[in-house]
Design a protein around this nucleic acid. Structure first.
Lengths: 185, 185
DNA sequence: CGGGTGTTTGAATAATGTCAAACCGAGTGG
DNA sequence: CCACTCGGTTTGACATTATTCAAACACCCG
């Protein structure tokens, strides 16, 4: 079992569930640090799907704690990354647990847009997901995601097509997404 | 802003949402370490409600990093706790995102039962939540939680009443909860 | 006895899932 | 250049799940 630093590409991290369902927990973007589990000896709890071609930097777990303890800044950095993951998971939970399908989709796309560009400026971002990824991340059905994206398109809020997101009305979109600007990651 | 170690009692950690909804992110049980945020300077992202009377051990954030870096075992312990929180958040997300109301409720009660007792033995546990807490944690309505608990009762799976959980058929319950025994926290 | 919080009930409604079929565009082999 | 396949998307009709609203109930506490 190893740890990875994702250098390029997108990866979906998910849990297997019964009856053909799966829950996507997070999308790893370049810079993400993945594979760390609270208990090293445990079986791996999630699967990973490469959404695009990826390149990673892999390093072994052996000697990991020693490395951390002899390099405090590294240790502090790791703590920061993991606690940010925790916050992202809680954002995701809030999204799935308390918003309508339309708000959920808008919210997810908005936050991926921000994570993908780290700037609010550009109007079109590459978000290489299929509608099926969105459905699995948000606890919805693929067909309902399709219908909801259509509604968002007809309201002139956004266009999501072929892995490209175009935001037409940022303010109105943030509004229906119930997007809290304090949460900018 | 301080950090807390919960010595006794239950606390609900939640996010405020618009239109009167709130999302409960986690229940803190005795032993939980709460108040740690990835970025110390940020506004606090969640609220906390004491479900029972509580007693906490509070200590200030100032000098926190220095303390960590001069005590590696402490640092390692904190990393463990935070990454376990991350895992709990992802379990919760999986529960809300991919299961029916009945399975969700059964799953939540089962995992709280385990966290509360740390032993599978006892048949009746104190889980001092109202149905409203359950609803807010699972993205459901209070009335639907009530109806679903009734169904669970009628199937002779569990009885949840006045803050006490009684598990009648552990195996059948774990089954409809889609409970994965590998996930025992 | 009265008021408050939490729970239960029922009926009507809205949101989302299911199933099945058609469609669309990109890549592939003839 | 065409026909095919394949993954992904769209559509429509219908079933199910969960929400909403409103009222009654139950229980504890003062």
């Amino acid at each position: 079992m190893e740890l990875y630093n994702l250098l390029d590409g997108w990866i979906a991290l998910y849990r297997f569930e019964q009856q053909g369902r799966r829950q996507i927990l997070d999308f790893a973007l370049p810079g993400s640090f993945i594979g760390f589990e609270p208990d090293f000896s445990r079986a791996l709890l999630h699967g990973a799907e490469c959404i695009t071609d990826v390149s990673v930097c892999v390093f072994p777990k052996s000697g990991f704690h020693e490395l951390m303890e002899s390099h405090p800044p590294l240790s502090r950095r790791l703590l920061y990354l993991i606690s940010r993951d925790k916050m992202i998971a809680q954002d995701h939970l809030t999204n799935v647990g308390s918003r309508s399908a339309q708000a959920r989709i808008a919210h997810l796309l908005l936050s991926l847009h921000i994570r993908a560009t780290q700037t609010d400026g550009t109007r079109e971002t590459s978000i290489p997901l299929t509608q099926n990824h969105i459905a699995d991340a948000l606890g919805l059905t693929t067909v309902y995601v399709s219908q909801t994206l259509k509604r968002l398109r007809e309201q002139n809020l956004l266009i999501f097509k072929a892995g490209k997101l175009e935001i037409l009305e940022p303010d109105a979109l943030a509004d229906i997404a119930e997007f809290d600007h304090l949460l900018l990651v």
